[in-house]
Amino acid sequence: MLNILVTGSNGQLGSEIKELARDDGTKIPIPNKFFFTNKNSLDITDLDAIYEFVEQNSIHVIINCAAYTAVDKAEIDESNANAINHLAVRNLALISKEKKIKLIHISTDYVFDGKNYKPYMEDDTTHPQSVYGKTKQNGEKAVREINPKNSIIIRTSWVYSCYGTNFVRTMLRLGKERDSLGVIYDQIGTPTYARDLAKTILEIFPKIDNDIVDIYNYSNEGVLSWYDFAKEIMRMAKLKCKLNPIETKEYPTPALRPHYSLLNKSKIKKDFGIVIPYWKDSLDECLKKMGERK
């Protein structure tokens, strides 16, 4: 049996892992003991605190779901964003290397500048355009430089779930409150249902066997804009709200978003033999779970 530490367990991905870990109806073999922590129960910016927790609980695997994800707020709160997205990640990598712990760290498409013309490969040059993206890039760099054995970085995009604050939940709320809504059509990518990513992490972590930290991309299959995504949410939920496609410049935000953030997932599919669900199928599943599929 393995002892697995999951940080950021109250977030979208952490919550999905937590649910899967206690769901005996899943096909995922989980003869393991999970330790689910949040910022109140374990401060990952404190190296000594992590070390003590790892020692006391004989941790074998760390799944780092903790992140500072307030993209716009990060523009004026760089210190806290850096502490969580970079320095805390460095702490986890240092301890993972020393204690021979397997580390799975979650990163983001925001490490890219969004100016590509084809789906990003894992070895494409990173060039973040926001504080959030830069701090996540620095977290990646720390893991790769420290290089704990049997560890990986997973980049993902447009994450949503039944939990937390995300695009799907926001569209459902606004779709019920408003008659019409403007949604950006010139940012292209693919949503990621956090439950699909959680299942993938639990499926692949026993198979990770590498001497050098590797990077993988993961999102659902398909290509769409935020406008397309919103249209499908409204259709599936049978909401009457009229959606108007708008350009990014019509909805200015403090942080720049990538205009193009498609991720090539061929590497993770090949190396681990996984099948990634199509985005509409996953959205359908999520809305049914939320009781919003009409």
Rank of each mutant, 00 (worst) to 15 (best):
G291S: 09
S96N: 06
K73V: 15
F34E: 06
N64R: 05
Y110N: 00
Q12W: 03
N82Y: 04
L181P: 09
S58F: 09
R257W: 12
Q129M: 14
K280H: 10
E78L: 12
Q56E: 13
L87M: 07
L103M: 03
G114T: 02
L94P: 08
C162H: 11
V183H: 10
V183Y: 03
K238M: 10
L103E: 05
T7N: 02
K265S: 01
P258S: 07
F34R: 00
C65K: 04
Y216G: 09
D209L: 09
Y218M: 12
L92E: 06
L239R: 03
V71W: 04
Y278P: 10
Y216S: 09
P128F: 05
D24K: 10
M121N: 15
S58M: 10
G189T: 03
K149V: 13
E140T: 02
I17M: 07
R235L: 15
T190Q: 00
S261E: 08
D48L: 15
D271R: 05
K238Q: 11
M121D: 10
P148L: 05
E250A: 14
N80S: 08
D214L: 12
D196H: 04
T37S: 08
I44M: 08
H259F: 03
Y51A: 15
I17R: 00
V111R: 06
F36T: 00
V6C: 00
G114V: 02
I59E: 07
R155G: 06
A142H: 00
S130W: 02
A21H: 00
Y185T: 11
R293K: 14
T248E: 15
L181C: 04
S79M: 13
M1Y: 04
I152T: 08
I30C: 03
N138H: 04
K33H: 08
I59M: 05
A83Y: 03
L202T: 05
